[in-house]
């Protein structure tokens, strides 16, 4: 097996540079929209909010990291949506693995780094403006290493793969199609869950406020397995689905 058929650092770097250059407009647009919304939200919250302390930066970070990143990931492999651009993309002399890796790096790691850095700058600017115009308010600084941002990053790395896989498998309107598929999958899971749990749900047992069927026994074990699968298996599974989807692309 010739490894350079799958990965070659110099070629990968060329591809990464090319993808970054080609997707620069999408990146800029996502940043402008995201931070435009953040600024608008920041000003409205200060005008109409009743709180004396502004501590919404972590929530804003989490929300826009996830939404912005999911939209950006849906735009990955955009060339595959157009039949003519697909010719160029598929015949570009880079391996499927390199094409997958470049997109993953840009939409996952690249987005996290760029968004976090820009968000830090945004909070510094927003807090300074806030101090200037809303003197009675206290603005808390944004801590990128705090619990909420770290958790958001963890969630993003895992769930972003769904949108990356959607970007390979759907032609056009990737974001709504992926959301619809996730909802459909959720509904199917909900129905299965309902069928399994129907006896408990319809039983005449009183349900005290601290009742938690996952507290002990088999259900707890199942719940742990599900959690483990989501946190440790979902991302690799998504990467495999994306990679094989890319490998099997035809025109």
């Amino acid at each position: 097996m010739n490894l350079s058929n799958y990965f070659e650092p110099s070629r990968f770097w060329l591809l990464l540079k090319m993808e970054l250059f080609k997707s620069r407009k999408g990146f800029i647009l996502t940043f402008v929209v995201t931070f435009g919304l953040l600024f608008t939200g920041f000003i409205l919250e200060n005008i109409f909010g009743t709180e004396r302390v502004f501590d919404s930066h972590p929530a804003g970070y989490a929300f826009f990291l996830l939404i912005g990143g999911f939209i950006l990931s849906s735009l990955a492999f955009n060339d595959l949506s157009n039949p003519l651009r697909r010719y160029n993309y598929l015949t570009l002399p880079a391996s499927t693995f390199e094409k997958f890796m470049s997109m993953w790096l840009l939409t996952c790691i690249g987005w996290i780094i760029m968004f976090t850095l820009t968000f830090i700058i945004y909070t510094l600017i927003a807090n300074s403006i806030g101090h200037l115009f809303f003197k009675k308010m206290t603005f808390l600084a944004f801590e990128p290493m705090a619990r909420t941002p770290i958790h958001s990053i963890r969630y993003y790395i895992v769930f972003q793969t769904i949108f990356l896989a959607g970007a390979v498998h759907f032609r056009g309107y990737v974001f709504p199609k992926t959301i619809f598929t996730v909802l459909l999958f959720g509904m199917v899971c909900g129905i299965i869950f309902y069928i399994i749990m129907a006896d408990i749900i319809h039983s005449d047992l009183e349900c005290p406020s601290d009742f938690n069927p996952f507290k002990e026994g088999t259900l707890l074990q199942i719940w742990h397995i599900v959690q483990w699968l989501i946190w440790w298996m979902m991302a690799p599974l998504g990467w495999i689905i994306t990679y094989t989807g890319l490998k099997d692309q035809e025109v």
């Binding site: 015949t91 002399p93 499927t96």
Partner: peptide, 11 residues
């Protein structure tokens, strides 16, 4: 679609 193949064809 190995890169070594793709660099030898142009469509």
């Amino acid at each position: 679609r190995f890169p070594q193949f793709l660099r030898e064809i142009y469509l």
